[in-house]
Design a protein around this nucleic acid. Structure first.
Length: 279
DNA sequence: CGCCAGGACACCG
DNA sequence: CGGTGTCATGGC
């Protein structure tokens, strides 16, 4: 068991930010997190956290995974004072960090995410993990995300059983291609953004939005700026289809997360200051 | 029950 | 380039 204090870090905000789909609440302020072949239980009380792993395990893996060496307050401070919406959004989601997730998992996950709700995405991802992922414990309930080899060994019928719908062939073909070239995705780790984007767009079922998500969440290109229905809604209603993206060059993806999280979650609250949903 | 979802794609003009 | 119809299916 490990206890520490961390600024700009909130488990619920990250779990509900739509960037990861394998972070589940076991109780309020208590989360199960599965990343690669690791399982972590984390508890939060304000800015104090407890993790069920050793300091060494945390330092070697989770510090980087949670991007804890980055100061997110500087991103928030860069938001103009006269942008009332982003000021609210950043305050509301000031515990969001861009997780450093696995490119392969992000590629498959965001291909299957298209035209699905977040709860439905989670259901499909868990079904894939249960179908062919490596068990993480003896309970038979927790599985790692399938490797390219494991996923490529599945039939179209098995994949279809995970509610992939018309995306089944996209997943099937991507698994076949990546498993045939084990170093393919890693070989783009240091590639320029434009080259990486072109590469991702070469997969069937990957367009501008999915490629942006894979770049942001899988390759940690924090200048990527995914535009989905929620983002388009915010930009249309709040900014009149003219968002000043140039103000956030180099970290637009962080700003994107504040906009998405606030736009998607805060409008459910009775917040009279919410420009998206004025009461 | 009807509607929508962290879209991509083919096709059109 | 920009606009339109189509693609399956779970959640709510």
């Amino acid at each position: 068991m490990l206890t520490m204090t961390i600024p700009n870090f909130d488990l619920k905000q990250i779990a509900d930010s739509g960037q990861c789909f394998r972070m589940t609440a076991l109780a309020p302020n208590r989360y199960q997190i599965i990343a690669r072949d690791r399982l972590l239980i984390a508890e939060q009380d304000g800015d104090t956290f407890t993790f069920d792993c050793s300091q060494d395990e945390f330092d070697r893996f989770w510090t980087n995974y949670f991007d804890l060496n980055t100061d997110y307050s500087t991103y928030i401070a860069a938001i103009p004072e006269d942008d009332a919406f982003l000021q609210l959004a950043a305050a509301y989601g000031n515990g969001i960090r861009i997780l450093r997730q696995d490119p392969w998992e992000m590629l498959i996950t965001f291909i299957l995410s298209q035209r699905k709700s977040i709860p439905a995405i989670k259901t499909s991802v868990e079904a894939l993990c249960r179908l062919c992922g490596t068990p993480l414990d003896s309970t038979g309930t927790r599985f790692a995300f399938p490797t390219p080899e494991q996923l490529s060994a599945c039939t179209m019928q098995e994949l279809q059983g995970c509610s992939l719908g018309y995306r089944t062939r996209y997943i099937f073909n991507t698994a076949a291609r990546v498993s045939a070239q084990p170093n393919l995705l890693d070989s783009y780790k240091n590639a320029p953004n434009a080259l990486l984007q072109d590469f991702l767009l070469s997969f069937q079922g990957v367009g501008s939005k999915v490629s942006s998500c894979v770049m942001l969440f899988g390759y940690h290109r924090i200048n990527a700026f995914p535009l989905d229905v929620w983002m388009n809604r915010v930009i249309s209603i709040v900014y009149g289809d003219a968002f000043p993206l140039e103000l956030y060059d180099g970290f637009a993806g962080v700003i994107q997360q504040y906009m998405f999280y606030y736009g998607r979650n805060a409008e459910l609250l009775p917040n009279q200051n919410n420009p998206i949903n004025p009461v």
